[in-house]
Amino acid sequence: MTVLLPGSLDEALQAMASHPTALPVAGGTDLLVHWPQRPELHRQTFVDLSAVQELRPLRWTTDELVLGGLTTYWDVIEDGRVREEFPLLVEAARQIGSIQIQARGTWAGNIINGSPAADGVAALMAYDGVVVLDSTRGRSEIPLAEFYSGYKQMRRAPDELVTQIRLPRREYSVQIFEKVGSRRAQAIAKVGVTVTRSASGWRVVAHSVAPFVCRCTALERCLESEASVGSPDDLLPAIREDVSPIDDLRSSAAYRERVMARVLYYGLLEVCPSFH
């Protein structure tokens, strides 16, 4: 196994450019799972990002919160301003694994791992997060909502690194993060739904109910139109348009669909006059 150890962002981008099959490593919390039982990985080339200081800081500008490529969940949990302005990031972070995972896992890693169950991605997407990808060829910026195209399929070239995640600062009137796991802590989501409302409109993001974390545009239209919703079942047509849950070891499609409708309904009942 080969690992490249860049000390700066430039070196990291060079390393990615010259090793097209290399995998970047941030916190390692996904990559190293069952590492001894996955010998095929031990023959890979890796680029260790941990010493790239430029990727660390979490920054505020007048109109954006900018997470670095190495910003961890714990960095966000510890930031009082994030708690004020983007509370769902903190909520999601606190429900990702345990403190041991929160201390190491990064938001960028959550995006690039591409799991349909990524709690962090759901919260970022509901805040209209934008992924900033850098390579020696230049920079591209892609809204997270347009980043995925299929299961673990995403718009990232092999030599690109996520160097920033930019979130617009807005006033939100509704912020809901609901994750249903198999256990109260440290569980992978079986169903997740995240809702925000700002001057830019409603955002509904679902996770663990489709091949990738996704915006639910039919549900968003339903909310924008203020259509009357009198029970969880009233949400099912839109849910069926937006997501495609499956049966797997963790849960069933029927459960996922039903529970998504129910957590959405009861979550919005408090905040939406059209829900009764």
Binding site: S182, R183, R184, A185, A187, I188, L249, R250
Partner: peptide, 11 residues
């Protein structure tokens, strides 16, 4: 242990 769950302290 990610799929066969035993309780954490929070459970």
């Amino acid at each position: 242990l990610t799929n066969y769950l035993i309780p954490t302290s929070a459970d």
